[in-house]
């Protein structure tokens, strides 16, 4: 219970800071808007090409905005010299990981919801029908992205060229998550039953279990480094 409370306090702190300044949320919102315009320019008005590429584009948007947000996970602690505060916090260090992860997850889901809404409006998607399936797939994929991203963000926080190294480290790990989510999103948008992508959902679930377990087990090592 103390573990959950510690994690919650940290997530609450981060979300409060974010809510007051809205720094990340605002810039990510405009980033999403910009990406959608870019996609439209890049693909032209051909509706068929658009609908075929849509699941990939959607995840490209999630990944790009997610990486931007995740890379800044520990920016506050680093820039304000509070890193030692994290290190010296009493109790299980993995509570810090879980707290940071929860904060990231909420922020990413918020941005993705806005993104989806914009996609629905611009590309004329039937979001209501696909919503339950889409929520499951997006939730699983985002958790996989955030679990690795939060761990690696702590790892690269004090490495030179971290802005470059962070995405280079995260993206190759996310290959299975990306393939799975794109395929599952495609099926959901086509109106296929979730059972048709059950193997992908299992893969995503297994990936999440593995990433989360590694994160919890190794976070104290990463924080000390």
């Amino acid at each position: 219970m103390r573990f959950v409370r510690r994690a919650w306090i940290l997530a609450w702190k981060d979300l409060t800071i974010e809510w007051r300044a809205k720094e990340t949320l605002n810039s990510l919102f405009f980033f999403a808007l910009l990406l959608i315009f870019l996609f439209q320019f890049a693909l032209g008005p051909d509706r068929e090409r658009l609908s075929a590429a849509l699941p990939g584009l959607l995840w490209l948007g999630f990944i790009l905005s997610g990486l931007l947000g995740l890379g800044r996970t520990f920016a506050g602690e680093r820039d304000n010299d509070c890193w030692d505060g994290l290190r010296l916090a009493p109790g299980e260090k993995s509570a810090i990981y879980v707290g940071k992860l929860a904060g990231n997850l909420l922020l990413m889901l918020a941005v993705e919801a806005i993104f989806l809404l914009l996609f629905g409006v611009f590309f004329d998607l039937d979001l209501v029908a696909a919503l339950p399936g889409l929520a499951l797939v997006v939730g699983l994929g985002t958790l996989g992205l955030a679990a690795v991203g939060t761990l690696f963000a702590a790892m690269t926080a004090h490495v030179r060229a971290r802005e470059l190294l962070f995405p280079v480290l995260v993206l190759p790990v996310e290959v299975p998550v990306l393939l799975g989510t794109v395929k599952a999103t495609e099926a959901v948008l086509l109106g296929e039953p979730l059972g048709s992508v059950a193997h992908w959902l299992k893969l995503l679930a297994v990936a999440n279990v593995i990433y989360l377990t590694i994160g919890v087990l190794t976070f104290d090592v990463v924080l000390d480094g």
């Binding site: 480290l169 299975p176 893969l203 590694i214």
Partner: peptide
């Protein structure tokens, strides 16, 4: 330390990559 964490993540990720590809 970091290489060890990354090595663990990457090695355990191989079966996931295998099946997804």
């Amino acid at each position: 330390q970091f290489a060890a964490v990354l090595g663990i993540v990457a090695a355990l990720n191989i079966p996931l990559v295998h099946f997804s590809v």
